[in-house]
């Protein structure tokens, strides 16, 4: 009885050993790898947060979004436009990005959660394309397809290494927040709706309300990733909200592993590394990534995380989050 009692609490607690391990590996790469590696690590970290935000929707809320880059883009533009159009200082503008993304998620989410399954996915696609088109076409405000550049020193003027550490800190905090959400009563309700909305509804929950909350949290986290990305490069382009980034986020989650908290993280590491190194060897890198994706989906349906878990069980070790 007592062991059962502590089970749910234990599950909900953050295992700081794993956090520390992950941070140590990242720091090692950043400081041993020099400027070049720090840039790569920063990109991976930002993508890990972006993919994890989608993973929250897909793995726990059972909502597949085909327009998740919209909130990444809104984060980048919310930050950038706050500086360029509203003259807000950079230090405050960084808060504008996630907030704009969150508001975008709330508005689009309210529309999308009215439907489920593939119809939901189609609505998210439409919302994503609307966002992209507005950013792309509204020259007077967003700068259109030329984007917004030269409005700040990239990385706040920090060195590659220090900015990588800064990004690492933010991403860890965000992922800890996400972990907390998933393992809270709110998260249990989100998972419940994801697994059987009729049971949840019959138990007194309004599934749409829960889905909208999950969608908004997810958009907020994607917005933080987008803001970091805009700071990292010191620019914002409509592509950040486009289909390319949406596809990237979906690939990362599937590659990394659905039904697993770490799926987005593994996916971001694998995908970014593939994207960086395969083109050096072979020009048709998309083909290689496609083949790898095919292999992973067939070999281990729950992606890298699922594969790692299986390995751990085989080796008799405990599971990672």
């Amino acid at each position: 009885m007592n062991s059962m009692k502590s089970d749910m609490k234990k599950k909900s607690e953050i295992d700081f050993r794993i956090v520390a391990l992950g941070a140590a590996v990242a720091l090692l790469v950043i400081f041993a790898g020099g400027a070049g590696m720090s840039l790569l690590a920063t990109e991976i970290l930002i993508m890990a947060l972006f993919a994890s935000s989608l993973n929250l929707l897909m793995s726990y809320g059972h909502m597949v979004s085909f327009g998740h880059a919209a909130y990444f883009g809104l984060g980048a533009y919310g930050f950038t436009l706050a500086i360029v159009r509203a003259d807000i200082p950079v230090g405050l503008a960084v808060f504008a990005g996630p907030i704009v993304a969150m508001i975008g998620g709330l508005i689009f989410g309210a529309l999308c959660v009215r439907l489920t399954e593939i119809y939901f996915a189609m609505l998210t696609l439409a919302c994503g394309q609307i966002t992209f088109t507005v950013l792309f076409q509204w020259y007077d405000f967003t700068g259109g397809d030329t984007g917004i550049t030269d409005f700040m020193t990239p990385r706040f003027g920090l060195s590659e290494q220090y900015f990588a550490v800064f990004t690492l800190t933010i991403v860890i905090l965000c992922l800890m927040f996400m972990w907390r959400v998933i393992h809270s009563p709110l998260g249990l309700a989100i998972r419940s709706v994801g697994q059987d909305r009729y049971r949840a509804e019959a138990s007194g929950l309004n599934p749409r309300q829960l889905q909208l909350i999950a969608f908004t949290i997810s958009a907020f986290l994607a917005g933080i990733a987008g803001t970091l990305f805009a700071v990292f490069h010191g620019n914002a382009f409509p592509d950040y909200a486009g289909l390319g980034f949406t596809l990237d986020s979906l690939i990362m989650v599937v590659l990394g592993g659905m039904k697993s908290f770490a799926g987005g993280i593994y996916g971001a590491i694998a995908y970014t590394l593939l994207k960086t190194y395969v083109p050096l060897v072979i020009q048709e890198w998309e083909l290689v990534v496609g083949l790898i994706l095919l292999f992973i989906v067939l070999a281990t349906p729950f992606g890298l995380a699922g594969g790692i878990k299986r390995l751990q069980t085989m080796l008799g070790m405990g599971g990672k989050p």
Binding site: M4, D7, M8, K9, S12, R180, V181, H183, S184, P185, L186, L188, A189, R191, S192, Q195, D196, Y198, R199, A200, A202, S203, G204, L205, L210, K259
Partner: peptide, 29 residues
Amino acid sequence: SRTFLHMTVFENMMSAFIMARGSWPSLST
């Protein structure tokens, strides 16, 4: 029967309680 297949029996029942009591809007364990 409709239950939450990928959760434990305990989590299923816990979920039913927090939904029925309306105590789900919380981040506190």
